[in-house]
Design a binder for these strands. Structure first.
Length: 416
RNA sequence: GGAGGGUUACCCGAGUGGCCAAAGGGAGCAGACUGUAAAUCUGCCGGCUAUGCCUUCGAUGGUUCGAAUCCAUCACCCUCCA
């Protein structure tokens, strides 16, 4: 195995990271691997608690992929045992614990999605049940004897809860220890995690020398902002990507939907996404930024990102198709292919437009429908309706459209 | 165990007998401008074929011509004292 020069590797792997403990050590170890030809062992663990992942989760995986592309080995560690303990990080309360079956099922869907990013040939897929299940009570005590309570209380959420006199159960202290023990068992060179994991990762670093191993380096990746993030004073600002804030792009999402959401990202924020998720090299990104500064259309740049992401999670043909469909339906004025059909009953001589919109589920109520018409947000057969009292005639078929930004279509046929 | 404060629409929050379908802000939606970006401006933001009617201010019951507003009971939350 021949590796790229160390400074080049450093530039790639440190892109976008939040914490790096310790930079010099990482350089040294990369140099060592460069000489010996031995790849670094790069660990990242996850608790398979949620089934569907979004781009925010992909940031960490992308970072691992960068290590892989440089020739190193990724260790994807399934926290089969620790998931049952429940990591209290970021929680103000105790987290619910899962059964082993739940965990296994979730792990399966998780890894399927993770391998859209990771290179399976350079990935070790492991479960920490392998070694934690085998720990004897004596070994467990020994592990616990390597960490003090006050050290645990340094962790923000524990400290806060202690100060607030909220309960901290003893098994919760076990979580960071077990996670750290995983690093011991795997003898890894570096562990990656989200910034909220910093404490846990450092426990691993502390533990390793106590077991006679060289301490791992620790690197944390940022939490990706949602698709509604803005650029404020040169910095990306916004809520983190999450399902509940509805500002996420799911890894399993439909190509067209992915494309649309990416095109809606703020022009200046797209580079944040590139930095954290693109497989493009630093040089390529720098070139792209220059082109942008020189006046290249931000839409073209966003489309590049959309293409890369859709190709990764679906395939290239789907990416092309999505781009074309997007141009046709949204940029142009075409009608999408899958428009719902409704047949509506009618009591009077005609069916009130507001009622029709409501029954076709384009609006939430007749009042809402009436409002939409009054505000000029409704088209019937591609012509804007201005009369809020308009009646649709029996026996005819109409194409209804509401809104433009989030346009919705439906065909309705009024029963004769 | 004692004392006090609170619960208002998606969220925050004003309102303490009629002028309250309920101020203001945020979110959201529509329109203008655009590139379905951002920013900005305008409007909307409980339901109902509607100058009116119906349902809503933690729940239930009451006082009143009239209740988000007063009274009683219940539920939940918070603060202080023990």
């Amino acid at each position: 195995m021949s590796f790229a020069p160390v400074d080049e590797q450093m530039a790639t792997v440190t892109r976008g990271v939040v914490d790096l403990v310790v930079r010099g050590e990482l350089e040294a170890r990369l140099r060592e691997s460069h000489t010996s030809g031995k790849p670094l062992r790069v660990k990242a663990g996850f608790d398979p608690t949620r089934p569907d992942l979004h781009l925010g989760h992909a940031v960490l995986l992308q970072k691992m992929r960068q290590f892989q592309d440089l020739g190193h080995t990724a260790i994807l560690l399934v926290g089969e045992f620790t998931a049952m303990v429940g990591d209290p990080t970021g929680q103000n309360d105790l987290r619910p614990r899962l059964s082993r079956d739940d965990v296994r099922a979730a792990a399966k869907t998780y890894t399927e999605q993770a391998f859209k990013i990771l290179d399976p040939a350079r990935t070790e897929l492991r479960s920490n049940a392998e070694w934690i299940d085998k720990l004897t009570p004596g070994e467990m005590v020994e592990l616990m004897a390597k960490m003090t309570v006050s050290r645990m209380l340094e962790r923000n959420d524990f400290g806060q809860r202690f100060a607030d006199e909220k309960p901290i159960y003893q098994h919760e202290f076990l979580y960071p220890l077990l996670q750290g023990y995983d690093s011991v068992a795997l003898d890894c060179d570096i562990e990656l995690g989200g910034t909220d994991q910093l404490f846990n990762l450092l426990v691993g670093r502390d533990l390793m020398p106590k077991y006679g191993l060289r301490p791992q380096m620790v690197m944390t990746t940022p939490i990706l902002e949602g698709t509604d993030a803005k650029l404020v004073n040169g910095k990306v600002a916004g809520k983190k990507m999450s399902k509940s804030a509805d500002n996420y792009i799911g890894l399993m999402e439909e190509p067209l939907s992915m494309h649309r959401k990416i095109m809606q990202i703020d022009d200046d924020v797209i580079f944040r996404y590139f930095e954290l998720l693109s497989a493009r090299t630093n040089a390529e990104l720098a070139a792209l930024k220059e082109e942008r500064a020189a006046g290249k259309s931000p839409m073209v740049i966003k489309a590049l990102f959309a293409r890369e992401i859709i190709t990764r999670f679906h395939d290239e043909a789907k990416a092309t198709e999505a781009a074309a469909e997007f141009a046709r339906v949204y940029s142009g004025d075409a009608i999408p292919e899958d428009v719902a059909e409704h047949t509506l009953a009618c009591e009077g001589p005609t069916l009130w437009i507001a009622k029709a919109l409501s029954e076709a589920k384009l609006v939430s109520s007749t009042s809402d429908g009436k409002r939409m018409v009054e505000q000029g947000g409704v088209e019937v057969d591609q012509v804007r309706v201005t009369d809020a009292k308009l009646g649709l005639e029996r026996g005819k078929r109409y194409l209804l459209r509401v809104g433009s930004k989030n346009r919705k279509f439906a065909y309705v046929t009024i029963k004769p």
